[in-house]
Write a protein that binds this DNA or RNA. Structure first.
Length: 270
DNA sequence: CTAGGTCCGAACCGGTTGCG
DNA sequence: CGCAACCGGTTCGGACCTAG
């Protein structure tokens, strides 16, 4: 069994295609005849069929779907392990240099519907298989939709994961309502984890340049929720935080008046 | 797998306050 | 006194969890 590897850092524009390193091509037998590559990852049991361009070096059609389904981003690193000639297992590494964790949403869901795709690889005949292979593209698309749909349910799996890694950070959703009522609810876990649920009074919000605003920190005792009042709207206006955006805040001071610093706007929103 | 319970945040409501 | 803005509490609906 071949066990050759190569890796690629994802650079701007990576969605359009992925180029196999020149030096790796010697491990691909008859690469000029190869028209399709098969990719799989730990995120699911899906076998992704990706078109290989004539020179046998570029993965094009299907790669974008693979990248989108795995929520790949600029700066991520993908490690290809050659399992068979043009069959690769792909390991996906995030900015933390660790393998990206997709949670159960990709795992469970795909257990059922993807076995059939694997069967397609093993078998060579039979009505069921034939119908699968003739519709392999749409089949792949439907798998893609299932992942997407599942991901939608969990709004921002990776984002949530990253914010949960650092308990002093939270992502604020600047909705029309928060601006209208001049009130921003703090996530309970964030408030509890940082002792804000017992420290009503004032809170300081600081923008990226270090300018600060003092706002009211209120709590709903009976429901255990904590929110920022009076000043949230003006802070948003002053810093150009528009409705519909997601902004990350980090608690940089716990003692005395708590201080939240605006880190940056979330890079993308769909 | 599904129904019921729980949690959470958005939206809303009614009382209070401030101002003309 | 009346209106508008503000404030704190409540309701509602969606997401998630869990037991059967």
């Amino acid at each position: 069994m071949a066990n050759n590897h190569f890796f690629k850092p994802l650079l701007p524009g990576f969605h359009s295609h992925l180029t196999i390193p020149e030096a790796f091509l010697k491990y691909i037998e008859g690469r000029n005849e190869q028209t399709m590559a098969k990719l799989r990852s730990n995120a699911s049991k899906i076998i992704w069929e990706v078109k290989v361009e004539e020179d046998g070096q570029r993965l094009t059609d299907g790669w974008k779907e693979f990248a989108l389904a795995h929520d790949l981003r600029i700066g991520d690193i993908v490690v290809f392990r050659q399992e068979r000639n043009m069959n690769f297992h792909v390991t996906l590494l995030g900015p933390s240099c660790c393998e990206i964790q997709y949670g159960s949403c990709l795992d469970n869901e795909n257990e059922n519907n993807l076995e059939s795709v694997e069967d397609e690889e093993e078998s060579s005949e039979g009505d069921e298989i034939e119908s699968l292979s003739t519709e392999s593209e749409s089949n792949q698309e439907s798998n893609f939709e299932k992942i997407q749909r599942k991901k939608k349910v969990k709004k921002h799996p990776r984002r949530e994961a990253s914010s949960s890694l650092d308990p002093s950070c939270f992502v604020a959703n600047v909705s029309h309502a928060t601006l209208r009522y001049d009130k921003l609810n703090l996530p309970r876990t964030f408030a509890r984890g940082n002792g804000l649920d017992t420290r009503m009074g004032e809170i300081v919000l600081m923008n990226e340049k270090g300018k600060s605003w003092t706002l009211d920190l209120k709590g709903k005792k009976s429901y255990g929720t904590v929110y920022i009042k009076r000043g949230w709207r003006s802070f948003c206006h002053a810093n150009g935080l528009k409705a519909g955006g997601f902004f990350t805040f980090k608690l940089i001071q716990r003692g005395g008046t708590p201080v939240l610093r605006l880190l940056s706007e979330e890079p993308e929103e769909e």
